[in-house]
Each structure stands twice: as C-alpha cells, then as structure tokens.
Design a protein around this nucleic acid. Structure first.
Lengths: 232, 232
DNA sequence: CGCCTATTTGATCTGATTCAAACAATGTGG
DNA sequence: CCACATTGTTTGAATCAGATCAAATAGGCG
C-alpha cells in the first residue's frame, strides 16, 4: 500500500505485516472525530474518505480527500489531540493500526519512519496548495485544479484508465472542499462540459482534455512530490 | 529556540550547538525560492517571514507567517523539491543549518527527530486551519481568526506584553494571506476598531477585547497543539 | 521639501451566494 | 412492478459580500 516510497523488501514486509484490524464502514460515517485522542491510525483501503471540520455556522469545510493507501490521521502518531475529523464519503474498507506498532516499525526500520514522515510532509504540501487554490483562484480554475490533483493522485495508484475514473464525490462535497456553494459548483461543472474538458456522470469522471484542464487550473504536479516516490 | 518542546538538557544542548550560519536579510527579500533544492534549513531568528506562492495572474498567496524560532522550510529535510518560497516581511536575522547536521542530531537524539517531526505536523495543522478559515469564514471572522492565531503563537514565545505586540505586517500582506483585497482588509480593520476589538497603528497591535475577537473568529487554539509543548 | 510606501475613501461592478423549486436517478417496500 | 421516498443535480431570480478602479491622505525618511 505504501510502496509509493522506495523501500527495501524487508521494509515492505514489515509494513504489510503490521497487525491491522480491518472494518467496513458505511457512507457518511465518521471514522475519527475532532477532539479524539486515538491510540491507532486508520488506513484507507477502499472507498473515499475526507478530512473535515465543522464551523459554528454549520458549514463543513473539507480539507482533504483520501484515496486508498492514504493514512488520513497519521499525524496522530505525534499529535495526541485530533484537530479535525475523518469521515467516509462512500462505503469504505478501513484498517486500523495501533500507534505502538507503527512507532515500533519505525524504530526497527528507520526508512519506514522517514517514509511516514515524508507522507505527512506531502500532506502538508497539499494543504499549502489548497490554501493557494481556495485563497486565490476563482471558481473555474479552482475546480479544475482540484480535479487535476485528485486524478493525478489516483493515476499514481493505477486507479485511472483511459482518462476516466471513479469520482464518487457529490457536488455538495466538492463545494464543501472548495469553499463554494453547491449551485456554483454545478454551474462550473456545466461550464467544463460546455468547454469539452470533462464528462461527469453518476460518479464517473472522464477527462476529455487534460492539457486544457491543467492550463485552466494552473496545475503543476510538482507539489505532490511524486517524483520522490518510486513505483514498486 | 526550539525549547517549546520537552527536551532534555543534552538534547537542548545538541540543538543549540548545531553549526549555524547567521545572516541579516533586508525586508521583502526571498530566503529560498519555489523550485530550489536546498541543502540546508533556515531558522527565523528575528523579524517576520512568510511562506508564499505566486499564481500566474501575479497574485501572491501567503500560506504562513513565521515568527522567531520557526523553521519555515523544515520539510526540505525530506522533500528535496521546495514547493513554495519563503521571504522576509521585515528586516530579519536568519540562521542556516545544513541538513546533514539536523539529520545527524536526529539520529543521535531520537527525541529531537520526534520534535522536528512534530513541528512539521503542527505546521500542517495550521495549514488545515487556514483552509477552513479561508474557505468558510467571511472577512470579519477571517481576520479575527488570523489575528488570534498570530497573537497566540507570539504569546507562547513571550512576544506579547499587556495584550500588545509588534505586528509589522501590512494590510496588503494580510490580504495576500487571507485571499482578500487590500481595500477590504482595511475596511475590516476599521470595523474592528469601531467595535473596540483592537487598535492597530504602524505595526503595533493591541488587543482590546480578546474574548470578543476570539468569539468573532471562532478561535479555538487547540489546533496549535501548544498543550503538547512545555515552556522551558 | 519631496519621495516612497501604507492607509484610507468613494463609487461601481461582478462573481458567487441564497432561496426556492423542479427534475432525475436510485432504491424500498408493498 | 409500481408508488413513493430519498438523494443528487439542475434551473431561475434576487441579492450581496467583496473585488476593482481611481484618487486622496498620511507617515516616515533621506
């Protein structure tokens, strides 16, 4: 799962043999909640999850979408207090690994500790880019950027075929992630269709014109630091 | 400088005796640039710095303000490619420490490695909160939140006295950080003055009504994870 | 004094929100 | 297999928060 990093066979083995409790979770359920002090991390195995916070006004701000292989709350390893919630967007399969096992694996295999650290650093790089995206790009570019990022990350996991993939994220959720209203998300999606950039129908996304989409969203994947990773 | 973490005397000594090259940098200069592959980290010693990216449209998005003690590009330790720039807002004193020394110190004192990791995790937590702030709060609340965050962080370093502190950040820069226009920053600052929340004059900020400001910005400092830290 | 940078003001415009309602797809139970 | 509830998408109209443009004002400083 984490073989997106250059790891030795022994390290990979240590990783995959970590004791993990797997469970199935329905859509729209919290996996962990803001305020928790978890003693384990969750690993997204199947389905889509997101990290979010609620504001007092009742708005949900999604800060990250997670795809299989991600560890949404890896930071809880060293930050005991959870400052945001992680919930499912679709039905999911999730694995739980006790902190002690992760810490122990990191102690025995320093490369693993580095890999974990780097994973959290890449998460931070993505948050930075979201600040840029939300803070300084208008709707059309903002959505284009988000789609490019998500597709690029899925591509790295082999989840994209023929420029199309599953994207079971509703327009409400896209709006919550980009800080814009559902209505405006919908109008922007329609603009994309009009401009022949994408098709999007019942959770199936197809990129019709990647270059134009990346151009519209000023998307440059360097911040994802995929070049540091080595497919296994 | 980093004694905001619970470290033993030996660890603190290892930290403070790291070979560091100190230099003075004028205001509005880049310290490191997006695209660099630095072999050292920079430590803010005096003055204010920020992390930012430029968009194609020429807008600057500031993603973080740094105060003395911060290591703005600590992530470069494990992400070779720098995905954003760090620049000075005021004249600054900055220290440079070679990566190898940091890595070496982390190897010899695992608690230091953990402390570094935790520092980057807290940075990430702050980015998450910025996404929430920019994505879901309107101007008045957004500025209130930013001021609360900045003052709280400065307070932790003893840089606040009698509810007032230096805040040599221009309204243009505040706007670049919050994704809003200078004009609107100005009007919001005036609203704060009208509401007797703050005074702000030539880089001097005074909080007149902390509770009201925190209330306006829905500010809850837990995400700063200061409770994990122990003043030394 | 004159220059430069930062703040302030007024007027106008617009991207995006809100509200409200219709519509489409999917699933559920009788 | 159909009626009906549910969830997600789409549409139109009215409104607004905040952007933009342009110009004035105010400090700080060589």
């Amino acid at each position: 799962m984490e073989s997106i990093f250059k790891l030795s066979a022994a390290e990979k083995h240590a990783l995959t043999s970590l004791p993990m409790q797997v469970s199935d979770i329905k859509a729209d359920q919290d996996i962990v909640r803001e305020g928790d002090r978890p003693s384990r991390c969750c690993v997204a195995l199947e389905g889509f999850t997101c990290t979010y916070k609620m504001t007092r006004a009742g708005k949900r701000q999604i800060m990250a979408f997670h795809i299989p292989g991600d560890i949404p709350d890896l930071q809880s390893l060293h930050l005991t207090y959870l400052d945001s919630s992680v919930g499912t967007l679709t039905a999911c399969k999730v694995g739980f690994v006790q902190h002690e096992h992760l810490v122990d694996a990191g102690r025995r295999y320093p490369a693993l500790a580095t890999a974990f650290w780097r994973a959290t650093l890449i998460d931070a790089a993505i948050f930075r880019e979201w600040v840029v995206n939300i803070g300084s790009r208008e709707a059309y570019a903002r959505l284009a950027h988000l789609l490019c990022e998500t597709v690029t990350r899925m591509k790295a996991l082999g989840l994209v075929e023929d420029d199309s993939c599953d994207l079971p994220i509703t327009q409400v959720e896209l709006g919550d992630a980009m800080g814009m209203s559902t209505v405006h998300v919908n109008r922007t999606v329609q603009a994309f269709r009009r401009d022949k950039l994408i098709t999007l129908d019942r959770g199936k996304l197809r990129i019709l014109d990647w270059d134009a989409l990346a151009e519209a969203g000023e998307f440059d994947p360097k911040y994802l630091h995929l070049r540091d990773r080595v497919a296994a």
